[in-house]
Design a protein around this nucleic acid. Structure first.
Lengths: 150, 150
DNA sequence: CTTTGTGCAAACACTTTGCAAGTCC
DNA sequence: GGACTTGCAAAGTGTTTGCACAAAG
């Protein structure tokens, strides 16, 4: 984790941002939470080291980290938002049954989907390449537009 | 929709609840929103007919409807909650690659998943029976437990 | 007539914003 | 020193709660 910190700093700086002790602390706190971590968890963890850190600082830092791609967030049930360090992962696709177009599903998206199954069925998806069929944005209007039961 | 109203009333009453014009209006408003409807949409629709209905009434009504199973809600991105009338739909499964166990994915779960693809890729999943492979709750601990990249 | 539901207003919780002081580079 | 960040406090949003009155059964 330590040598990665250098990379964080480079990314932060390359976006015109500054490396402050608060931000480092926050990143550490997110790392500390294996996988997804909630806002509250991060705040608690951060406050252990520096109780003077304000909620607004955390909000702003998380926004910034997401913006520069250091952190990804995903919504999980009950309005809870979870954060985690971004990294490269397997790909998944959406394929349009009408025009054949292939769309790569983003990391964030798949994370959200997997989290749902994990939370609601305690099931860990193991597929490294999922393909889901349906209609892409363009074909949704052109197609039969069947609004029937999902 | 009209003859279903009788069923709603029966369900409401069977739970010791009362059928008020407000509740009927709210149910109608949810029905009117083909599929998922947000809190705001429901409120707007309801207020068209009766502007005196209060937000708190809507919150309480939705809670009640969910409690008695008349309505299901699903979280979609950004803390938005969507509501819809509960009913039977196509099934999807999770299949354990270790023990072969088959788990049916709940309506709510799949709704959430589909909403994610819709929102983030504007893609409408058209599959009537999706099967996802992975590890079920029991096998997650027994198996290799590879915590590696997703 | 009893119990439940509604509307209103106040209370809460969570997030965002403005700004002066502090800090990074 | 200049630009970016922080902490604090205030303002927004969205949701919940207390209570007297109204309505359903």
């Amino acid at each position: 984790m330590t040598h990665q910190k250098l990379e964080y700093e480079a990314i932060i700086r390359s976006h015109g941002g500054r490396v402050t002790p608060q931000r480092v602390l926050i990143l550490d706190a997110i790392c500390a939470g294996e996988g997804h971590t909630t806002f509250g968890e991060i705040l608690t963890r951060v406050k252990l080291t520096d109780p003077s850190i304000d909620r607004s600082t955390l909000y702003r830092a998380l926004d910034f980290f997401e913006e520069v791609g250091l952190v990804v967030s995903a919504e999980i049930g009950k309005g809870e938002k979870v954060y985690e360090i971004a990294r490269q992962k397997p790909h998944h696709h959406l394929v349009c049954q009408s025009c054949g177009r292939e769309i790569e599903i983003g990391q964030q998206t798949m994370r959200q989907v997997f989290d749902i199954f994990q939370r609601q069925h305690h099931f860990q998806i193991g597929m490294k390449h999922i393909v889901l069929l349906g209609l892409c944005e363009d074909c949704q209007s052109g197609e039969t537009e069947s609004p029937g039961p999902m």
